[in-house]
Amino acid sequence: MEHQPKALYCLLGTFTKTPEFFEAAGKVRDAGYKKWDTFTPFPVHGLDAQMGMKRSKVPMFTFCGGLFGFCLGTLITWYMNGWDYPLIVGGKPFWSPVFPFPVMYELTILNAAFGTLLGMFVMNMLPRHNHPLFNYPDFVRSNDDTFFIVIEKSDPKFNREATEAFLKEIGAEEIHAVEA
């Protein structure tokens, strides 16, 4: 069954020169658009700041994961060696923070890594199996030689004519309406 595009999803402006594209991204940010994105064939340093993006929240997931792992390691070593089945090994105390530290530390790292992975999925709203932008037949150009600025219809400031004029004004070479 072929997918039938129906309603407008976004307006897409293309750029071929990095400085113009970079300036244009700043203008979209200053115009107050919220639901918009950029697509580049290669990493452009400083683009996140230019787009007005805040720092990622993923480190909080990492920290919480690490803290959870540390507590988990402490709990299982204390429960197993100090409480449930006290056993003297090598003349050491039943439980002290020294001998099980490798367990606590490894679980900290493991769960911090899990937290990071989970945080990346949550913050990126993954997994998703398709994206409406793929309906634009030349999407692959963003991996080759073209920069995209995409302003979604769901943006409160979006207005078909005004936004199209705005994209033209900031220097977009082609403007396409993508439907979903």
Binding site: G90, G91, K92, V98, F99, F101, P102
Partner: peptide
């Protein structure tokens, strides 16, 4: 620093 302590502590 911990590893140095840990090895000496465990070997005793």
């Amino acid at each position: 620093s911990f590893s140095q302590y840990f090895l000496i502590y465990n070997a005793n």
